[in-house]
Design a protein around this nucleic acid. Structure first.
Length: 515
RNA sequence: CGGGGCGUGGCGCAGUCUGGUGAGCGCGCGUGUCUGGGAGACACGAGGUCGUGGGUUCAAAUCCCACCGCCCCGACCA
C-alpha cells in the first residue's frame, strides 16, 4: 500500500469499497510511487532490506525472467552462440588491465579481502561484468584463426555498488546475460555487434511489446573500454528513457590487455576483435513501466507466467463440484494450446490457473488483475447450462472489451488468436504513445519548456557533437543524449544548428531524461 | 557522497514534542456461521526483545549520546 494513499485514508476514516482498498498510487499522482506499488502488489519483487540495494525476485517476477531467458537463449543459439559459465570472483588485478575499464568500474566494485578466515594475498572483486576474466580465458583458448569466431554467452549475476537503487531498474546485484565474442576482423566483429542489437530490438518488440529506438551511444555514455556502444532505448509512460540493452564493439582493447592473440592463415600473430552485449532484469522494470496501469501489472502474453485464470462461481457444494469439474476440463483444453508464432524455436503452451481459494469472486478478480494475468474466465452454473464462458481481458482492447459471454468451444478455438491480438495491441499502444510523445525541438527556449521540472519526453535535436555541449545540457536539465539513431531509427540526417550551442550539426540525436 | 524520511505484532501506522492509563489502530492471519457473477458481514481468537548499545530517572517506545540499517530525492551507472 502506498504511504500516501494510506495517510489519506487514515485521516478520512473508513473509506468504503474500492477507495478503501486502494493499494496502488496512481501514475498521475506519483509515478515513482506507482512503480514501486505495482512491483510490490503484483508480487514481482521486494527490497531485500537486510542486504543494501538488493532485491528478492519473487516467484511471479522470476517466472517472467525465465520467459525472457527462454526466448533470448533460443535466439542466441540460433545465431551460433554457446552458453558457458565463469567465476563470480575476479582477481582484482584483472580489472586494472584495461585503462578505461578500471576507471569506469572501480567506484562500484565490491571486493572480497578475506576468505577462509584469512586475509587474501590478492583481493577478488565480485564481477561487475566479465570482460576481464573471459578475456583471460579467451587468451588460453584461442590460438589459431581456426578457433574463430568464438561465440560465448553467460547467464549470470553481477554486482555493482550503485549509489542509488530502484527495484529491477538498478539494483546492487542483478541478473543478466552477457555475450562475449572474439573475431578475426573488425568488420566481422562489427557485424556481430549489430546482429545482437537487432536481436535485442526484435525481442523487445515481439516478446515484451516494448518499442525501442536503436542507436549509437555518445563517447561519454558508451561502455567503459569499448570503441563503440550500440543500444536500444525505450520510452516509459512518464516520458523518460530506459536503456533496455547494449551491444559493444570492444575493438582490440581487451585483446591487447589480456594478450588474446591468434595466428592468421598467413602465419602472422594478431590480436582478436571482441564484442560484448547484454540485457538484464532491468527489462522487467521496463516491462512494468511500459504497459501497466493504475490497477496494477499488465503483461503481454508472451512473457506472462499465467495466461488464463479461471474463477469458479458457485453457491453450494453441489455447484462447486460441478463447476470445478468443468473448470478442470476447460483447463485441460487450454493447456494444450501453443501460442508461439510459427517461426518460434520453442513451444509456448498456455498456463492456466483455477483459483479455488475460499475468497469472494470479486477479491479474486482484483488479485489477478494486479498480477497482470491477460485473460480471466468466470465460470458458474449458469454458464455450464448454456455451454458458455464469461471472459474478460486485463485491458479493454481489440482482443475484447468488458465482460463477454462466448460459447465455450468458440472461446477455446479463438484463444490463440485472441492472445496474439492482445500481444500486438500492447505493442501498438506503446508505439503510438512513443510516437505521439516524441517531439522535434529546434530552440533552447522550447527545450527548457519541454524538459521543465520532472517532465521528460523523446526529443530529436541537433547537437554539435561535442562532449562539452552534452555535459552542459545534462548539468542544466538532466537531459542526456540517449543515442545517435541508426539509419531508419530517427529523422533523416539533415544539416542544422545545435539546439544548445547553435553550432553546425549534421544529424538529430535522441534526447531525454533517463532511468 | 550530499539532502530528506523512517526503524513499534506478518504488513502499514498512531503513540515520542509534554517520561507514568493494561502498548493501541487498520489490514492481514486462524476458527466458526451466514455468504458467493467486481475487494462480503458478524463473532471469537492468536500474534510484541518498541532497530542495537550505553546514559539520565523512582519510572524510558517517549529525554540524551553513540552506532546499525532501510527507503526516498540528487550526482554516477544495465
Amino acid at each position: 500500500m502506498s504511504k500516501q494513499g494510506k495517510g489519506k485514508q487514515g485521516k478520512q476514516g473508513k473509506a468504503k469499497g474500492k477507495q478503501g482498498k486502494q493499494t496502488i498510487a496512481t501514475r498521475a499522482a506519483d509515478y515513482p510511487q506507482w512503480y514501486q506499488d505495482v512491483v510490490r502488489e503484483s508480487g514481482l519483487a521486494e527490497p531485500a532490506k537486510v542486504v543494501k540495494g538488493c532485491m528478492v525476485i519473487k516467484p511471479h517476477g522470476y517466472a517472467i525472467w525465465e520467459k525472457i531467458q527462454r526466448d533470448l537463449d533460443a535466439r542466441f543459439k540460433a545465431t551460433g552462440h554457446q552458453n558457458a559459465y565463469f567465476p563470480v570472483l575476479v582477481p582484482q588485478s584483472f580489472i586494472t588491465k584495461e585503462a578505461e575499464h578500471v576507471e569506469g568500474f572501480a567506484p562500484e566494485l565490491a571486493v572480497v579481502t578475506h576468505a577462509g578466515g584469512e586475509k587474501l594475498e590478492e583481493p577478488y572483486v565480485v564481477r561487475p561484468t566479465s570482460e576481464t576474466i573471459i578475456g583471460h580465458f579467451f587468451a588460453k583458448w584461442i590460438e589459431s584463426h581456426r578457433d574463430l569466431p568464438l561465440l560465448i554467452n553467460q547467464w549470470a549475476n553481477v554486482m555493482r555498488w550503485e549509489k542509488r537503487t530502484r527495484l529491477f531498474l538498478r539494483t546492487t546485484e542483478f541478473l543478466w546475460q552477457e555475450g562475449h565474442t572474439a573475431h578475426s576482423s573488425h568488420e566481422e566483429a562489427k557485424q556481430e555487434v549489430r546482429r545482437m542489437l537487432d536481436i535485442y530490438g526484435d525481442f523487445a518488440e515481439e516478446i515484451l511489446g516494448v518499442p525501442v529506438v536503436r542507436g549509437v551511444k555518445t563517447e561519454s555514455e558508451k561502455f567503459a573500454g569499448a570503441l563503440q556502444s550500440l543500444c536500444i532505448e525505450a520510452m516509459m509512460q512518464d516520458g523518460k528513457a530506459l536503456q533496455a540493452g547494449t551491444s559493444h564493439d570492444l575493438g582490440q582493447n581487451f585483446g591487447k590487455a589480456f594478450d588474446v592473440k591468434y595466428q592468421t592463415a598467413e602465419g602472422e600473430m594478431e590480436y582478436v576483435w571482441q564484442t560484448s552485449w547484454g540485457v538484464s532484469t532491468r527489462l522487467i522494470g521496463g516491462l512494468v513501466m511500459t504497459h501497466s496501469d493504475d490497477n496494477g501489472l499488465v503483461l503481454p502474453p508472451r512473457v506472462a507466467p499465467i495466461h488464463v485464470v479461471i474463477v469458479p462461481i458457485f453457491r453450494n457444494d453441489e455447484q462447486r463440484e460441478r463447476v470445478l469439474e468443468a473448470a478442470k476440463s476447460l483447463r485441460t483444453q487450454l493447456q494444450a494450446i501453443d501460442i508461439a508464432p510459427s517461426d518460434c524455436r520453442y513451444r509456448d503452451f498456455l498456463e492456466v490457473v483455477i483459483d479455488e481459494r475460499d475468497m469472494r469472486p470479486g477479491a479474486k478478480y482484483f488479485y489477478w488483475e494486479q498480477r497482470g494475468v491477460p485473460l480471466r474466465v468466470e465460470l458458474g452454473p449458469r454458464d455450464l447450462e448454456k455451454g458458455q464462458v464469461c471472459i474478460k481481458m486485463r485491458v479493454d482492447s481489440a482482443a475484447g472489451e468488458g465482460k463477454q459471454f462466448l460459447a465455450q468451444d468458440e472461446f477455446v478455438a479463438g484463444i490463440r488468436e485472441r492472445m496474439l491480438l492482445f500481444q500486438n495491441e500492447l505493442l501498438a499502444r506503446a508505439r503510438t504513445r512513443m510516437q505521439e510523445q516524441t517531439v522535434t525541438i529546434d530552440t533552447w527556449d522550447e527545450f527548457l519548456k519541454v524538459f521543465a521540472g520532472e517532465q521528460s519526453t523523446f526529443a530529436w535535436c541537433h547537437w554539435d557533437g561535442t562532449a562539452e555541449t552534452e555535459a552542459a545540457i545534462k548539468a542544466q536539465t538532466k537531459v542526456t543524449i540517449r543515442c545517435v539513431p541508426l539509419p531508419g531509427q530517427g529523422p533523416e540526417p539533415e544539416e542544422g544548428k545545435c539546439v544548445f550551442s547553435g553550432k553546425p550539426s549534421r544529424q538529430r540525436v535522441l534526447m531525454a531524461k533517463a532511468y
